[in-house]
Design a protein around this nucleic acid. Structure first.
Lengths: 100, 100
DNA sequence: GGATTATTTGCATGTTTGTGCATATATGAA
DNA sequence: TTCATATATGCACAAACATGCAAATAATCC
């Protein structure tokens, strides 16, 4: 794993590693259909502008997908992407390698 | 997942989500035997005191295990713990639940 | 004992980050 | 067009964080 990969992975983990953002992610876990920000507001203790900013971070790191529709934006989890990244790190951590 | 669990998981992810700490973790991935801080210094761009602090964070969140031996401390990954946490989140993210 | 090595900690500092509020932009509805 | 709703953004601010340096602690070696 080169240093760029480590940096990218760190960005992903950091994005997930904030309570309100993780709450948003967990909320989105349970949703079959994309949700807008107003609807997501209720699950974390920040105002609409805060939620907007958190969702932006999640979108920039590829954790959520945004779909513009009228005056709302609908957010959904990039389930496969996030799960793959987490599982890949889990596997790497579980398998000890060559170093003494 | 209640809010305490979310907070704990966020702490874990935040601890992993800093480049130098993640570099330390990746380095430890490859090691069969516990490593001391001096040895781990070489894999990230901070001085010994910085490494000491990072390792402390990793220990406090249960990511690494510390074993005091003489004047050195030997660090090893809590592989099963970390992998389980990551996989559990991955599973939760992959399986959509009841909410509309 | 004194010197050396490993690690921790206090301090100062600069940076990042999360937040609310007010305002701006954008879109839809009346 | 005017009003209401959804989201984004500029600003200010406090809290958290990463960092290096110097000093402290701890343990081994001579």
């Amino acid at each position: 794993m080169d240093s760029n990969e480590i940096q990218d992975l760190a960005d992903l983990l950091k994005a997930l590693g904030e309570v309100n953002r993780l709450s948003l992610v967990c909320r989105l876990c349970d949703c079959k259909v994309p949700q807008n920000a107003m609807c997501l507001c209720s699950c974390c203790s920040v105002d609409a502008s805060g939620v907007s900013r958190h969702l932006k971070v999640l979108a920039q790191t590829g954790i959520v997908h945004v779909e513009k529709q009228g005056r709302t934006r609908n957010y959904s989890l990039n389930r496969a992407f996030v799960a793959t990244q987490l599982r890949s790190l889990a596997s790497r951590i579980e398998s000890q390698q060559e170093r003494p």
